[in-house]
Design a protein around this nucleic acid. Structure first.
Lengths: 215, 215
DNA sequence: CCGTTTTGACAATCTATATTGTCAGATAAC
DNA sequence: GTTATCTGACAATATAGATTGTCAAAACGG
């Protein structure tokens, strides 16, 4: 009975699959357009043109512009965080080594993919409370990647104290923001090392200033 | 001749003085309204009503809404920074003591005056490139108050390395942002101390130039 | 008091884009 | 080939608030 209810195929895809494909094309187009002209000046029309779709398909997948921005942001963040987590895992058990691995991957990605980076860092600010909520949550996840909850046994199951986590993420994001908006003036190793020095405050290693910058 | 050219007095003030007064009333009203409904939903009309003035006077003093936002922000920042500088100066010569004094004043003010705090921290984000430029510059000044340029004699006339300054301000502002938006859950001493721990990364690095990467 | 300047209330205009709606032509199923 | 479904281009509508303009009443100077 399922198959009999399936919609007519177009281009070998059923209705559901076509819808999903269009949604993805819109997200990719949005990242592209946001990266070029910014979210604020990105019109629905322009995004649809970049996606080679018309407005009707925009509203098929998204209630409004903001919904697409959130989808695009989430898309970027999900990939980035998954890779950071993998990089951290590959770096072994030492908390500081994992931190450096995750940050190096982070900044490397930002440089390799400037447009998603702009979406992630610059365009997302100050849009609406709904968007703020999404980025806030992403920040929490970010901090847990950099300083995992299990690190300090005294705080069973919790990451660094909230204010420390907030400060840490604020420092890292601010550094990244500036680095991206100025078009990557410093080498990845330097920004990663500087960011790491702020993260160590939260790790509790702030009192060991003997960390050299990796060449 | 000068006095003969003076405009007719109203309420004991000449044209110029009345203009200045209206401008100030608009700035105060804007802080009030932004603090209540946010910059985005603050209409020109609403601000004018709060200032007990009509739209014509809005455009007498400001080219557009953004100009008023910038003026309001600058107004808030100027006062805050002046007081922080004074507090730091009163704390003597020790860099860390000055840092703590400035931060304590900073967070105390944010709590005492929630509406300007919202303008300063929350409403100002993501408005336009022009506004970003203003906040960026304010950040630079902020960092110089916390970690004065003269602190490290080896970097003549410069504050902490740029990326460190950016990270430091990012951490402090992020902490403040969260603290304000959650309505001051922690005591001033705690937020100030946490913020200070991030600032010491920049202070400490100035002490240990082995962190510096040759540019 | 008279004429001028200034003010306050409010109407008129303007602009830009999101969002919805229409229709002819294209594509698939049978 | 015929019919139902889907698609693309584009027109029509809706909105919302900024910005400009008008006018009569109020405040001042002499």
């Amino acid at each position: 009975m399922e198959s009999s209810r399936k919609a007519r195929l177009y281009g070998g895809l059923d209705a559901e699959e076509r819808r999903t494909e269009r949604r993805l094309k819109l997200i990719d187009a949005a990242i592209e357009v946001y990266g070029e002209v910014g979210y604020r000046s990105a019109t629905v029309k322009a995004i649809c043109e970049a996606a080679e779709l018309t407005e009707r398909y925009f509203y098929e997948s998204f209630a409004n512009s903001e919904a697409l921005l959130i989808a695009a942001y989430t898309h970027v963040v999900d990939h980035l965080y998954a890779d950071m987590t993998a990089a951290a895992a590959a770096a072994g058990d030492d908390a500081d080594a994992r931190l450096r691995a995750a940050l190096t991957l982070y900044f490397t990605r930002l440089k390799e993919h400037p447009k998603p980076a702009r979406v992630f860092l610059l365009e997302i600010s100050g849009i609406s409370p709904a968007v703020e909520a999404v980025t806030l949550d992403a920040g929490r996840v970010f901090s847990e990647i950099l300083v995992p909850p299990t690190f300090d046994p005294r705080r069973s199951g919790k990451g660094p104290a909230t204010l420390l986590a907030v400060g840490m993420i604020g420092a890292v994001i601010s550094i990244a923001r500036r680095w991206v908006s100025r078009q990557y003036p410093e080498p990845v190793a330097e920004v990663a090392a500087t960011a790491a020095s702020f993260c160590r405050v939260a790790l509790g290693a702030a009192d060991h200033p003997s960390h050299a910058v990796p060449g």
